[in-house]
Amino acid sequence: MIAPATRSNAPTDAAECARITMAHARTFSLASKLLPLEKRRAAYALYAFCRVADDLVDQADHGNLVALRLQLDAYREQLQAALDGRPSGPIFREMAWVTRAYEVSPAPLFELLDGVGRDLEAHTYETWPELEQYCEGVASSVGEMCTYVFGVPAGPAMRVKAIQYARTLGTAMQLTNILRDVGEDAGRGRCYLPAEDMARFGLTAQDVLARDPALARHASWAKLMAFEVSRARALYAAAMPGIALLDADAQRCAAACATGYAGILSAIEAQGYDTISSRARIGRLARVGILWNAWRYRAPTPDLSALGHGPRIVWEPNTASSNADALVRLA
């Protein structure tokens, strides 16, 4: 069992991380209730660390890139100081404890900072592999962090495989975020959808950045979004076997995160793929249902010989569908 943090300000620091999590992460806040207390506290610390880093980029004035980079560099220095045993502030005091208690590798922490730093520039993504690399930086890194906290009982070698599945889940969740937030991102001058995918359906980044609600009623938009939703679902399917590799007391939380975020894809479909003028949301009753299903979740006993080195995804059109462009399947 992980020993709790014993410093006198630990309860206050933990409460601040919990506050940040509950204010910004509905799905994760619910899912984390399925974790034992110490792991929940550690998960809140990781979320708060990632959230504040993301907010440094999203909420600041992008007219002054030099100032933004300096802020992110200072955040990076605070992280390094925390890892060196010299933490300052509630989040980094909690991060110092989490990384020590759960032996979290520094690599995904710094990968996250590099990933959010890419948003300081007006990046566009020509292909899915380019966007996937961005998703790995800002979200697969989070999946890797969480794997250390959730625990893998079969030992370090199996943890390597569990991390690969968790990173795939992170990519699925970030792609879901992108599809949900098309209009909001366009308001910041960002279009994450791969240019190659948009061109396949006769669309361009400028069509998205114009934020014209009429675009959402265009047949080409629905086809593009169906294509990307199917890609996200294939990623979720590829990631799910990894949940069985986690400690039993963390499997329900991981399942709730996966199914909760996957549920956003259904919400996107339910509003006719219009994420330009509105944000797709899961209703309260649906979130409670997700939590209840996660509580009853029992991961199957994994066939370790079949897991190989982690998920392998081959993208190809679904020839069983009359609309081959609309679907991507996992092969």
Rank of each mutant, 00 (worst) to 15 (best):
Leu113Ser: 08
Thr27Gln: 10
Ser32Val: 10
Leu30Pro: 00
Met225Thr: 03
Pro300Gly: 03
Ser105His: 06
Ala286Glu: 13
Asp325Thr: 13
Val66Tyr: 12
Asp325Met: 13
Val98Phe: 02
Ala186Thr: 06
Ala18Asn: 11
Ala299Gly: 07
Arg40His: 07
Asp325Trp: 13
Ala326Arg: 15
Ala18Thr: 10
Leu30Gln: 07
Val104Cys: 13
Phe49Ala: 11
Pro90Met: 00
Thr301Asn: 10
Gly187Gln: 12
Gln251Glu: 12
Glu144Gln: 13
Gln174Gly: 06
Arg231Met: 06
Cys146Ile: 14
Ile2Gly: 04
Ala81Cys: 02
Glu77Ser: 12
Ala157Trp: 08
Leu46Phe: 07
Thr21Cys: 14
Val142Trp: 05
Tyr261Ile: 04
Ala280Asn: 02
Asp58Ile: 05
Ile264Gln: 03
Asp197Pro: 04
Ala67Lys: 13
Val142Lys: 09
Ala18Gly: 06
Gly155Ala: 13
Thr176Arg: 06
Ser88Phe: 00
Val328Asp: 13
Glu38Thr: 11
Pro11Tyr: 00
Thr259Arg: 12
Asp61Trp: 02
Arg233Asp: 13
Val160Lys: 15
Tyr125His: 04
Gly137Tyr: 09
Leu131Ser: 02
Leu65Tyr: 06
Gly137Ser: 09
Gly143Asp: 09
Gln71Phe: 01
Gly289His: 05
Ala324Gln: 14
Asn177Gln: 10
Trp97Val: 00
Leu224Ala: 10
Ala294Ile: 00
Ala294Phe: 00
Gly310His: 01
Ala244Ile: 04
Thr99Cys: 15
Asn293Thr: 10
Gly308Thr: 02
Glu77His: 11
Leu35Ser: 06
Lys223Gln: 13
Thr301Cys: 09
Ala210Asn: 10
Ala267Met: 01
Tyr148Lys: 10
His24Ile: 00
Leu35Asn: 04
Val208Ala: 08
Val229Lys: 05
Gln71His: 11
Ser88Met: 03
Ala256Leu: 12
His24Val: 01
Arg329Ser: 14
Arg233Glu: 15
Asp73Leu: 08
Arg284Cys: 00
Glu94Cys: 15
Val116Arg: 03
Leu179Lys: 01
Leu30Glu: 01
Ser230Ile: 04
Arg281Ala: 12
Leu34Val: 05
Asn177Leu: 06
Ile276Val: 10
Arg76Asp: 07
Leu37Tyr: 11
Ala286Arg: 14
Gly155Lys: 09
Asp185His: 05
Ala101His: 03
Leu203Pro: 02
Arg86Ala: 14
Arg159Ala: 15
Met240Leu: 15
Ala286Pro: 02
Met22Leu: 15
Arg26Gly: 14
